[in-house]
Write a protein that binds this DNA or RNA. Structure first.
Lengths: 143, 143
DNA sequence: ATCTTTTCTTGACTTGTTCAAGATCGTGCG
DNA sequence: CGCACGATCTTGAACAAGTCAAGAAAAGAT
């Protein structure tokens, strides 16, 4: 069974109250995957009128906590959000412009999920980040 | 051939000027792997007297750029540094206390280094981060 | 020893994010 | 359908990590 794509149902399903800001955030992130908080705030205001930046921060946290959104924050960049959750995919990050693209698991369903020596940690997630240069930046660099 | 463990030689080898702050930072990070900037500043002052926080930031950036140090910044946590570079090992991060431990590559030398679909990105590094709970925090949580 | 260039010091500032108090709104219940 | 309660939003201040900028100091070449 797939998770509903309707914001209201998603919220209900997660036992969260349905509010204008929350619906708008879910829609905004679905429309702009990998958007940072600022871009989400803009997109939310475009579709739902005045919403305080604080509300967006709160909502992003609540939705991330509920598992409806996933937060990505590559080293040195600001936090970004995406609505594609639960399929354990990974990301490529451009060192130059910070652009992010999705990458599905290379080998099977959960490739690097088991550490060789976990030092007694109980591991629940493996996050893979690929670093490189995006096509656009590669093109610009080559004069 | 192995990279020297002597700070002065490391700096010379990277064509960097040898200064008191730089030597102190290299020693501090070697002594305290996975320390954040603040901890590095403290450690540097302990061993080299007054050094401005700005100098430490500059030095950390210069050394990271030269490949003498590696910067780690898990989502939501402040930047940390380690001197174990060039062996492509990964990290486990405790969700509760932020503690970090080293993890060697699970399968062979470079497990997940190839993305299934790179979207045209030219990838130069794959970073793997394991998330979980460290032994200490597991013990505290279980009442 | 002197000169040039890099690096360090000082201190202000920016950015992304969080805290806090009170107003407002969603939802369950009568 | 309307009320009560608690969750959520607004407003505005605060905070932490890191960066910027100008001048003083020091490393290394000659």
């Amino acid at each position: 069974m797939t998770v509903s794509t309707d914001p209201v149902q998603q919220l209900r399903g997660a036992a969260l109250r349905v509010t204008r800001p929350r619906v708008a955030v879910l829609e905004a992130v679905a429309d702009h995957p990998h958007a940072d908080t600022d871009a989400v705030i803009q997109a939310v205001r475009d579709r739902a009128g005045d919403v305080s930046h604080q509300a967006v921060y709160d909502v992003l946290r609540a939705l991330t906590g509920a598992g409806l959104l996933r937060r990505i924050q590559p080293s040195g960049l600001v936090a970004r959000y995406e609505s594609r959750v639960g399929d354990n995919h990974h990301h490529v990050v451009c060192r130059t412009c910070g652009d992010i693209a999705d990458v599905d698991c290379a080998t099977g369903t959960a490739p690097c999920l088991t550490a060789s020596d976990d030092h007694g940690f109980s591991i629940d997630e493996a996050e893979v980040l690929y670093w490189g240069t995006c096509p656009a930046c590669t093109a610009t660099t080559v004069h």
